Amino acid sequence: MIFDNYRISLLGVNDGSTLFELIDSNRQRLEDFFAGTVSKTRTLEDTLRYCDEIQKHIKELSYLPFMIIDIKTDKFIGLVDVKNIDMNVPKAELGSFIDKQYEGKGIVSKASNLVVNHIVEEYKFIKLLCRANSRNKGSIAVILKNGFELEGTIRKDYRTTKGEIVDLNYYGRIF
Rank of each mutant, 00 (worst) to 15 (best):
K100N: 01
F34T: 04
K91F: 08
T73G: 00
E122I: 04
D86C: 14
T18C: 02
G152A: 06
M1G: 15
F33A: 04
I58P: 00
N133V: 00
C51H: 00
I174A: 12
S139E: 03
H118C: 07
A92R: 00
I77S: 02
G147T: 14
S17P: 05
I77H: 01
R27W: 02
R27Q: 11
I71N: 08
S17K: 11
F125Q: 03
K59F: 01
G106E: 07
I126Q: 05
G16V: 00
T160I: 09
M67P: 01
A111F: 05
L128T: 03
Y170M: 13
S109C: 07
V38N: 03
V166E: 12
R135L: 13
F76I: 11
A92P: 09
N146S: 11
Y102G: 00
D52R: 12
S9C: 11
K100S: 15
G152N: 06
F34H: 14
D74V: 13
A132W: 01
R42N: 09
E122V: 05
N84G: 09
G172V: 12
H118V: 06
N26Q: 13
V38M: 14
E103Q: 08
L144C: 09
I126L: 07
L22N: 05
N88D: 03
G78F: 04
Q101S: 07
V166R: 15
G163T: 11
L144H: 09
V142Y: 12
E103N: 12
N117K: 15
K72Y: 01
I58N: 05
K124T: 01
S62E: 13
T37P: 00
F3D: 07
I2N: 14
V82W: 07
R159V: 10
Y50L: 06
K145F: 13
K145G: 09
D32C: 05
L128S: 09
K40L: 15
L94T: 03
A35E: 15
T47K: 06
L114V: 08
I174N: 09
A35C: 11
C130D: 02
I71F: 00
K75H: 05
N113H: 12
D24W: 07
V80C: 15
L10S: 13
K124A: 14
L94A: 08
D167V: 15
Y171Q: 11
I23W: 06
D52P: 00
I71G: 13
